[in-house]
Design a protein around this nucleic acid. Structure first.
Length: 230
DNA sequence: ATGACGATTTACT
DNA sequence: GTAAATCGTCATA
């Protein structure tokens, strides 16, 4: 199949990598040996110490974001909102805290395992208690990895994977398989999602997605192209 | 020690 | 549209 992405592939600026990752396949191997995979359809670029929306803004370097300063091809996984994990791939040059957030995949294999991971955790199975049928209808295939938090949940990715090197491939349970380049015309871009008060950085069109994919997150105001294209 | 804050998601008015 | 869930992390004291 396609070959694993090389160090060179990741050694570029965030915007270029965000585009290059679209269409690539992310493969996650569980401890059980199950292989879950999906096509990357949505990414966001975080440009580094000058990017007010970045965890590394103003050279901020703490135990949490330490892996942002690692070699290109390193995984940066963080925990937020008390319940979600988000996964990034570090790029740029070594010691440069530049990264791309993985926001959505179109599931390819291991959908049953993904559905299992996404299944809500019942607080306590109380016999006799009226089972409040969680109004949640069964998840459709295309929404299993829709959104950065859901993506990590479906693929069982957490801080244990933070700092993993996607290139060496030694004992790595996550890998990126390149694919033939995507037609530039099929890529849309727009402002990043979920940012706080970051001034003008809020509007920079650093979010990229594959036009037409149902798995792309964010508000879908129209039908054909998902979020407002730019 | 304390408090404010999330690169989110989901449910609800 | 608004709000709640939920807790690790970081800056401040």
């Amino acid at each position: 199949m396609p070959r694993r992405a090389t160090r060179r592939f990741y050694s570029t600026d965030a915007e270029s990598l965000a585009r290059a990752l679209l269409g690539a396949t992310l493969v996650r191997t569980l401890d059980t040996g199950e292989r879950l995979s999906g096509m990357i359809v949505e990414t966001e670029a975080y440009l580094g110490i000058g990017d007010r929306a970045s965890h590394a803004y103003n050279s901020r370097r703490t135990p949490r974001n330490e892996s942002m300063y690692a070699r290109p091809g390193t995984l940066y996984v963080y925990f937020t909102y008390g319940m979600h994990h988000c996964a990034n791939i570090v790029c740029g040059r070594p010691d440069e805290p530049v990264a791309v957030l993985l926001r959505a995949l179109e599931p390819l294999t291991g959908l049953d395992a993904m559905r299992r991971m996404r299944a809500p955790v019942i607080p306590s199975e109380r016999p006799g208690a009226s089972m409040k049928t969680s109004s949640s209808r069964p998840l459709r295939d295309w929404e299993l990895c829709r959104g950065p938090g859901n993506l990590c949940r479906a693929l069982a990715m957490d801080r244990a994977l933070d700092g993993a090197d996607l290139v060496s491939g030694v004992g790595v349970s996550v890998e990126i398989a390149r694919r033939s380049p995507i037609e530039p015309a099929s890529i849309s871009r727009g402002p990043r999602i979920g940012l706080g008060d970051v001034g003008t950085w809020k509007d920079r069109p650093l979010r990229f997605w594959l036009r037409g994919s149902p798995s792309v997150s964010g508000p879908r105001l129209d039908g054909a192209d998902g979020p407002r294209s730019v």
